[in-house]
């Protein structure tokens, strides 16, 4: 007897939650409907979560001077940017690495900024510098204790990025490793998750975009950017090309780009967004 009653209350609880979800979805779709005003052209960009915040800021500025244009920016990784731009799901794709020869056959890349990938450690970790060989040893678990690379007697906790992230591809390309060679203790998705992993366990080593690392370190997050191959990671060393782990931040288009999208692309590659590029701790390209 008691069972029936409680089953009912379980059910009504589940239903009421479903109801709110439905309502939420409904209001969302209403909100997106109201955006479709007459005479307004929408440009959609998808792709790299590294590039997306910069493009979103640039889009805001562009919309101010072009009231008839709405720009939607969605992040989801470079691979998605390439796929969406190629299939026409999005007008333009955001890709935070150089295109492969295969990709360059169908898509054209426009460089809007440059970025570096740097190794980060906890502020309290005495290690300040790691060269390429040491990083290879760490990421393949040949070096498992910080004392072997000049640190304290503590285990090295290796944080790696999840499949498909361009930071992963850029970093592994620098080390000359296949992802199957990497023996990680922690696999994470976002740059901020890497940073938080280092903060929550000071024995962790990770790698993130220099832009993200520099802004977090400046805001008081207890991390430091590690000197690699004798070069300090910074916007200056990325700009002058001396920092060894760098990548272009691209916006890609296929052959059927609309006039509106092409105009926005022109804006993205112009000096008009250089201040925004610097605000996001990236390096403007001439």
């Amino acid at each position: 007897m008691g069972n029936d009653f409680s089953m009912n209350s379980v059910f009504s609880f589940a239903v009421s939650r479903k109801y709110w979800v439905l309502l939420g979805g409904f209001s969302l779709s209403l909100a997106s409907c109201s955006k479709r005003e007459a005479g307004v052209e929408t440009i959609t960009l998808t792709g790299s979560s590294t590039v997306a915040p910069l493009v979103a800021d640039a889009a805001k500025r562009y919309e101010e001077s072009h009231p008839a244009v709405r720009i939607e920016v969605q992040s989801g990784g470079s691979s998605r940017g390439l796929a969406d731009a190629g299939s026409g799901v999005a007008d333009l794709g955001m890709v935070s690495r150089a295109l492969t020869l295969e990709e360059a056959k169908t898509l054209k890349a426009h460089r809007i900024a440059a970025d570096g990938v740097c190794v980060i450690l906890h502020k309290d970790n005495p290690v300040a510098e790691l060269n390429r060989q040491q990083l290879i040893d760490i990421y393949t678990k040949k070096a498992v204790n910080w004392s072997t690379v000049g640190g304290a007697d503590a285990p090295i906790v290796v944080a790696n990025k999840a499949e498909g992230r361009s930071t992963l591809e850029v970093f592994l390309h620098f080390l000359g490793l296949d992802n199957a060679d990497v023996k990680a203790d922690v696999v994470v998705g976002e740059n901020l998750h890497v940073i938080n992993s280092v903060v929550s366990n000071p024995n962790t080593v990770g790698y993130v975009s220099i832009g993200t690392a520099a802004s977090e370190a400046k805001n008081g997050t207890p991390i430091k950017l590690v000197i690699t191959e004798g070069i300090t990671p910074s916007m200056e060393t990325v700009a002058d090309g001396t920092f060894p782990i760098t990548r272009p931040l691209n916006v890609v288009e296929d052959a059927q780009t609309s006039a509106a999208a092409a105009a926005f692309l022109q804006f993205l590659t112009s000096p008009a967004i250089h201040d925004l590029v610097e605000k996001h701790y990236f390096v403007p390209v001439p």
Partner: peptide, 12 residues
């Protein structure tokens, strides 16, 4: 699924 879906290409 959460880590890889947004980054996956067709067969993946």
């Amino acid at each position: 699924i959460a880590l890889e879906m947004g980054y996956a290409t067709a067969s993946h």
